[in-house]
Computed example of a mutant assay.
Amino acid sequence: MRTAVVCALLCAAALPGPSAAASAPQAPPAAAQAASPAARYAAQAPPAVSVTVAVTDGRDDAEAGKRLDYRITVHNLGSTAVRGARIEQEMPATTTSATAPGATLEGRGEREQKAVWHSDLPAHDIQVFTASAVLGDRHDDTGSAAPGTLRAASTVCVYVGESFAPTACSGDLDDLPETHAEAGGGNGWVGWAVAAAATALFGPGVVRAVRRRRAAQPR
């Protein structure tokens, strides 16, 4: 009996204990260690999108009181659908009223009005949005594109997700007429009228004075 107990103790002492390598936590694979934070973020980032936008009102000039009808075309060129795209149109600075079916209108005063649409853009899909703006009188010539003119500008941008940077933008420009042209022309006619009146009043006296001077000169 003692011999059996001693053998059991000796066998237990001879057996190896738990491996340190087995009990230690295993290190992550070398590929995972080599991956940088930027690489891990890139793997989680949404795929790049390819979207274009175009806007036109079908004309090149405008004037106060007229309505401009805009047509906005958004084209998703990519093979991936774009969810929750945001399309924003800035109305011309002199806009007094605007309409945009399906959009939310922001701002009420001049230089502040904007239309905002929210829409999904399926892959390779084209979507069309419409809006209208009625122009009011402009107050100065600041920013004239050419002597006597100012442009009514409208811009449209497409935003993807929560980004503040647009994915695509486009614009439309219309020339506005010179609002002070008649006033300037009126001042010119007033000047001509004054000159004509002065000539009628003083012209005969000047002629007589010239004749007298010539008659008084010795020949």
Rank of each mutant, 00 (worst) to 15 (best):
Val156Ile: 13
Pro166Thr: 03
Pro218Val: 08
Val5Gln: 11
Val5Asn: 07
Ala193Arg: 06
Arg213Cys: 04
Leu9His: 07
Glu182Tyr: 02
Gly65Ser: 14
Gly65Glu: 03
Val210His: 13
Ser79Lys: 12
Pro122His: 12
Ser132Gln: 06
Leu121Glu: 02
Thr3Ile: 13
Ala100Tyr: 04
Cys11Met: 15
Ala103Asn: 15
Glu178Met: 10
Val210Ile: 13
Gly188Ile: 05
Leu77Ile: 09
Trp189Pro: 01
Thr73Arg: 10
Ser132Met: 03
Leu15Met: 09
Ala24Met: 03
Ala131Leu: 13
Glu112Ala: 11
Glu106Arg: 15
Ala35Lys: 01
Trp192Cys: 11
Ala197Asp: 10
Val116Thr: 06
Thr56Met: 06
Gly143Ile: 10
Leu121His: 02
Pro92Ile: 00
Arg108His: 14
Leu150Arg: 09
Ser154Cys: 03
Ser36His: 11
Arg111Asn: 07
Ala62Met: 02
Ser50Asn: 12
Val49Ile: 08
Thr95Gln: 04
Arg86Gln: 12
Val49Trp: 00
Pro101Ser: 05
Asp60Ser: 14
Ala24Phe: 00
Gly191Met: 14
Leu135Ala: 03
Leu121Asn: 01
Met1Cys: 11
Gln127Cys: 07
Leu173His: 14
Asp60Lys: 13
Ala133Asp: 00
Val210Ser: 12
Cys11Lys: 08
Ala30Val: 04
Ala198His: 12
Gln89Phe: 02
Thr199Lys: 05
Ser170Pro: 09
Arg111Asp: 08
Cys7Ser: 15
Thr96Met: 13
Ala20His: 11
Lys66Asp: 11
Ala215Cys: 07
Ala216Phe: 01
Val210Asn: 14
Pro28Ala: 10
Ala64Ile: 02
Ala181Glu: 07
Val116Arg: 03
Pro37Met: 01
Arg111Trp: 06
Pro101Asp: 02
Trp189Cys: 06
Leu150Val: 11
Pro29Gly: 13
Gly102Val: 15
Val5Asp: 14
Ala22Met: 09
Thr155Asn: 01
Ala48Phe: 00
Cys157Arg: 01
Gly107Arg: 10
Val206His: 10
Val158Leu: 08
Gly65Asn: 05
Leu15Val: 08
Pro29Asn: 03
Ala165Ile: 06
Ala62Asp: 05
Ala193Asp: 07
Gly191Lys: 07
Ala152Glu: 05
Pro18Val: 02
Leu77Thr: 08
Ser23Ile: 05
Leu135Phe: 04
Arg71Leu: 02
Pro122Gln: 07
Pro147Arg: 12
Ala32Thr: 06
Asp60Phe: 08
Leu15His: 15
Asp137His: 09
Ala14Ser: 11
Val51Asn: 11
Ser170Lys: 04
Pro46Gln: 10
Ala13Arg: 08
Tyr70Gln: 00
Arg111Thr: 14
Ala54Thr: 11
Tyr70Ile: 00
Gly185Asp: 12
Glu182Gln: 07
Gln33Ala: 12
Asn187Thr: 10
Pro47Ser: 02
Ala197Phe: 15
Val74Cys: 10
